[in-house]
């Protein structure tokens, strides 16, 4: 067990306090073994920067994104309204999340159902901490490493956030190299639209393999991601290409945390 501080909203409430920001962990961040590491890396950074954050813990539930993108509007709205009730009861104003799907859903689709919050992707939040001087980023082991960033669709195209993750990577004194299709033309990892939870339709290739090939063209040492699902897809892609020993797939939060041995 590591020494990390993860207070819940209920604990804050009991003390009659409000946290600065709610950390929305998301299903992947809570349950997926790979994504849990990203969650903890982010927590370590938040602890280091003395950010007073809280999580909902067992009161958090799926945002409804995979249900909505599958076409189940009813289930989506049930999830949304339940989550909104919880968050409104806690008078949540600001949310940070490491999952672009949660980010997009809460930011764009909750307001119409009564959930109006300031929502930030963790790369945006970390960038703001950096700008405010609350966080310093060191290159550490990543100095001079060749890093390519894979844009998550729901962060990039869906919400036009391209620069925050890149600025964080540059701060590591790493060599940020772009794939041929990046930013608004970035290729999907293949997980979105609930594809994560089903086998792909028949084709000549899996989408994550195509994207991994594009990433490998840049001869990277690290493929940086900003989404737990992209992370899984790219990790699988790298395994499929038998490149695990040469190329690591890491979240931007992990890069920052590991560089400082947090």
């Amino acid at each position: 067990m590591e020494n990390i501080k993860v207070p819940t909203m209920a604990e804050f409430m009991a003390e009659g306090k409000q946290p600065e920001v709610l950390f929305w962990v998301g299903c992947a961040g809570s349950f997926d073994d790979r994504a849990k590491k990203i969650t903890k890396a982010l927590v370590r950074i938040l602890n280091k920067a003395n950010v007073e954050f809280a999580v909902l813990g067992t009161e958090e539930s799926c945002t409804g994104d995979p249900a909505k993108r599958s076409g189940n509007e009813f289930l989506f709205q049930m999830q949304a309204v339940t989550n909104i009730e919880v968050m409104n009861a806690y008078e949540i104003k600001k949310i940070v999340t490491a999952c672009p799907h949660c980010f997009n859903t809460i930011k764009n689709e909750y307001p119409g159902l009564g959930g109006k919050y300031e929502v930030m992707h963790h790369t945006q939040f970390l960038k703001s901490l950096l700008d405010e001087g609350r966080l310093s980023i060191e290159g550490g082991q990543f100095k001079g490493k060749r890093i390519t960033f894979h844009d998550p669709c729901y962060l990039g195209r869906a919400n036009n956030v391209y620069e925050a993750p890149r600025e964080l990577i540059r701060k590591l004194d790493a060599e940020l190299i772009e794939m041929k299709s990046c930013k608004s033309r970035g290729l999907c990892c293949g997980a979105g639209g609930a594809q994560m939870f089903k086998e792909p339709e028949k084709g000549d290739k899996d989408i994550n393999i195509e994207r991994t090939e594009q990433a490998l063209e840049t001869k990277p040492q690290i493929i940086a991601a900003g989404c737990p699902f992209c992370n899984t897809m790219m990790t699988d892609g790298i395994k499929g290409k038998e490149k695990e020993s040469e190329v690591a797939v890491m979240d931007v939060a992990e890069l920052i945390a590991n560089a400082q041995d947090l």
Binding site: D32, T58, S61, G64, A194, M196
Partner: peptide, 27 residues
Amino acid sequence: ELNNMMTNVENNGAPWPYNQMDRLNWK
């Protein structure tokens, strides 16, 4: 598979069959 995922969301608040009460276990 999507029906399974949706059943999970409906019953345990996550697309996978984990218990909602275990949501903070990672800590």
